Computed example of a mutant assay.
Amino acid sequence: MSELSKAIRELVEKHLPDDSHFLVDLKVEEVSGKTKVLILIDADQGVTIQACARVSRKVSEELEANEIIGDAYVLEVSSPGVDFPLSNMRQYQKNIGRELKLSLITGTDVVGKLLELDEEKNKVIGKEKGKRKEGDRRGTGFSFF
């Protein structure tokens, strides 16, 4: 991780509204001569536009006050959309009971309801071609973590 990414990550974590909010992803890249910073945050009960705006405002204030990014930059703070893959245990936990599309390491996609989740196994009721099929899969079988 670059020093810039590390510094921005620390700012984001410092300015999250409360402990129910968490950082999902942070991307820093050069686009058309400007630094683009994309921050994705989530919360256990869902993230609001107000939370995104607050994080954006606070991070931007500190970036400018401390001259962390020297030139022009674009800052975007958002929540991950429904098409953004789940990437950490906290996201999976908040989606227990919801229907998910899982991409297996075999290349097969399975759609099913996430029933249980722990560090060692994940229980999903999957649907394949209109049939209901219950499966008990190990974490290595999914695109988890």
Rank of each mutant, 00 (worst) to 15 (best):
T48G: 15
T48Y: 13
T48L: 14
I49V: 00
I49G: 01
Q50T: 12
Q50W: 07
Q50D: 14
A51P: 06
A51W: 01
C52L: 03
C52M: 03
C52R: 04
C52I: 03
A53Q: 12
A53S: 11
R54C: 10
V55N: 08
S56M: 09
R57W: 04
K58T: 11
K58H: 12
K58F: 08
V59E: 12
E61M: 05
L63D: 09
E64T: 15
E64W: 13
E67T: 10
I68T: 12
I68P: 06
I69R: 00
G70T: 15
D71H: 10
A72P: 07
V74D: 05
L75T: 06
L75G: 07
E76P: 04
E76K: 02
E76R: 02
E76G: 03
E76W: 04
V77R: 09
S78H: 05
S78Q: 05
S79N: 06
S79A: 04
P80W: 03
P80H: 02
G81V: 05
V82H: 02
V82G: 00
V82I: 03
D83P: 04
D83G: 05
D83Y: 04
D83E: 03
D83N: 08
F84V: 07
F84L: 05
P85E: 10
L86R: 11
L86N: 13
S87H: 12
S87W: 08
N88Y: 02
M89F: 08
M89H: 11
M89L: 09
R90E: 03
R90T: 09
Q91L: 12
Y92S: 01
Y92E: 00
Y92I: 00
Y92D: 00
Q93M: 00
Q93T: 00
Q93C: 01
Q93S: 04
K94P: 13
K94D: 10
K94Q: 13
K94F: 13
N95T: 11
N95M: 12
I96T: 03
I96V: 06
I96W: 00
G97T: 01
E99R: 06
L102N: 14
L102W: 15
S103V: 08
L104I: 11
L104E: 13
I105M: 09
T106M: 15
G107K: 01
G107C: 02
G107E: 02
T108I: 09
T108A: 07
D109Y: 14
V110F: 12
V110K: 12
V111Q: 15
V111R: 14
V111C: 15
G112A: 13
G112E: 15
K113Q: 12
L114V: 04
L114Y: 05
L114C: 06
L114S: 08
L115W: 11
E116N: 11
E116W: 08
D118Q: 08
D118A: 06
E119N: 03
E119M: 02
E120V: 03
K121Q: 07
K121V: 12
